[in-house]
Design a binder for these strands. Sequence first.
DNA 1: TTTACTACTTTGCGTCACCAAGTAGCGTGG
DNA 2: CCACGCTACTTGGTGACGCAAAGTAGTAAA
Lengths: 110, 110
Amino acid sequence: MEESQLLRGVLEGCVLAIIARGETYGYEILTELTDSGFEGLMEGTLYPILTRLEKKGLISCRKEKSPYGPIRKYFSVTEAGAAYLASFRESYRRISVSADTILNREAESK
Amino acid sequence: MEESQLLRGVLEGCVLAIIARGETYGYEILTELTDSGFEGLMEGTLYPILTRLEKKGLISCRKEKSPYGPIRKYFSVTEAGAAYLASFRESYRRISVSADTILNREAESK
DNA sequence: TTTACTACTTTGCGTCACCAAGTAGCGTGG
DNA sequence: CCACGCTACTTGGTGACGCAAAGTAGTAAA
């Protein structure tokens, strides 16, 4: 599918935005993403994103037992993460404006 | 830059959309893209896209002399290309709706 | 003939979504 | 008690594609 290419980078920003709404953990993020329209998303896609975000210092991690399964890793955004998210939103907006301009332009006289 | 990741796949669709407006060639597409907001775009990025689109049979190519420089390769979309463009627009819209939902959601009670 | 603009090509690189498989804690039904 | 299903995180390999950098080449003006 060509779809996977369109998700590049977008996913990372979305994950950060979800965590920014309140401390949460991987599995919950996954269901939230699939509910929001990212339907085919696999665990093998999400968890590396979380690892990456943590490694970049954009989110921090806290472990806590789950009543239903293995240990959960709760994430929350750091200051750097909040700043990054803001700049991400701006980049995303700018690019989508450009793309919309081109994609939605009618076939004019040229 | 993280920007380059956000361009993934988007560029290919935009290039196709530009060609769909009327037969054109690489260098002109490049200036059109940079004018539309894709400012840092390099030739080494665009031309491989054109090669790929042609190899997939989404565009066809015709050579013609330029009054100002080397030979130009004029491209136009094929039937398959038009169909692909339509499905691309739909994919793009669906994904950007999902992303907007997440990115523009206020920090609610959760 | 040097500079500048037009115009296309090629190579190597790094990022990241995807797939597949694996590990593991917990609860329920047979 | 053990197989199943849900929760929850991990890992390794693959492939797509944007980017930087350099090269080739035609035209025309300085």
